[in-house]
């Protein structure tokens, strides 16, 4: 299975299916028998209370955790789990709940790390730099500059990301994932801790990525307003179990989801 095969899947058909995934750390069951599928080109949200297993689910998808049981069907092939490097090569990129940027490096270098897997020159050529290695750097720099333009990061290109404000760091992290030109983008709480304007910006970026680049997006978010507005379909987890799934409207009226997570408004 290659990136090419992924790109050949028609939009709206399933690109990723999780079959009866269970994940346990010793006696702690993080996920129990969770199944859902993600279609190509949609915005798919995973919601649920804290500790429901949402982040673990993303870690399973991008190969950081191996599920204790269950299968992941990725672009038509069943597998028990993936290596992170393989997942990254196959076009799965992600951002983290608590920002995982490379703090000592500049914004530009952080985004350039997103291109690492696509750079092929060996280290001796890089040490020489003249010729092929230098050319390769320029090609990837150009791709990264497009991401910089798209996310409006021009002014902080040379700034070490450790000194950037939180909202910008979140944006740089999205940029790093986008620089990988992923087919599936996993976003772990991209709007956590942001104010209304930053949330609006971020929602717009997510929607543009989805519309323009046709990237499939799997997202975890706690802001129900945002989730209901931008997602095509939603799955709800609670204590590691799936308690509901469907279109936003269905989720809003789902009794189990309301009891476990959404709650009832007073009016």
């Amino acid at each position: 299975m290659s990136l090419q095969d992924l790109q050949n899947i028609p939009y709206g058909k399933k690109i990723l299916e999780l079959k009866n995934i269970s994940l346990a750390f010793g006696g702690v069951k993080a996920l129990t028998d969770v199944s859902f599928e993600v279609n190509k080109g949609e915005v798919f949200a995973i919601i649920g209370p804290n500790g429901a297993g949402k982040s673990s689910m993303l870690n399973v998808i991008n190969g950081f955790y191996k599920p204790t049981s269950g299968l992941i069907n990725f672009a038509g092939t069943d597998r028990k789990g993936m290596e992170p490097e393989f997942a990254a090569k196959s076009g799965i990129a992600r951002t983290f709940q608590n920002i995982a940027l490379f703090k000592g490096m500049s914004t530009l270098d952080n985004l350039m790390t997103g291109r690492l897997l696509k750079q092929k020159q060996n280290f001796l050529m890089q040490a020489l730099y003249f010729g092929p290695a230098g050319k390769e750097e320029e090609i990837h720099r150009e791709k990264v500059e497009r991401v910089i333009d798209f996310l409006d990061l021009q002014s902080i290109r040379r700034t070490p990301v450790g000194s950037l404000p939180y909202g910008l760091q979140k944006r740089v992290e999205l940029g790093r994932a986008l620089a990988m030109e992923p087919e599936i983008l996993l976003l772990d709480e991209p709007m956590a801790g942001m104010n209304v304007e930053e949330k609006q910006d971020m929602s717009r970026f997510v929607l543009t990525v989805n519309n323009e680049f046709k990237t499939t997006i799997v997202l975890i978010e706690h802001d129900m307003g945002v989730v209901m507005d931008i997602s095509d379909r939603i799955v709800v987890l609670d204590y590691g179990k799936k308690i509901g799934s469907g279109f936003p409207q269905e989720i809003r009226n789902n009794k189990a989801v309301i009891d476990a997570y959404l709650g009832v408004s007073d009016d």
Partner: peptide, 12 residues
């Protein structure tokens, strides 16, 4: 150096 887990996930 800066974050080995994130590095692994982007394919280092």
């Amino acid at each position: 150096r800066d974050m080995d887990i994130a590095a692994e996930i982007i394919g280092v």
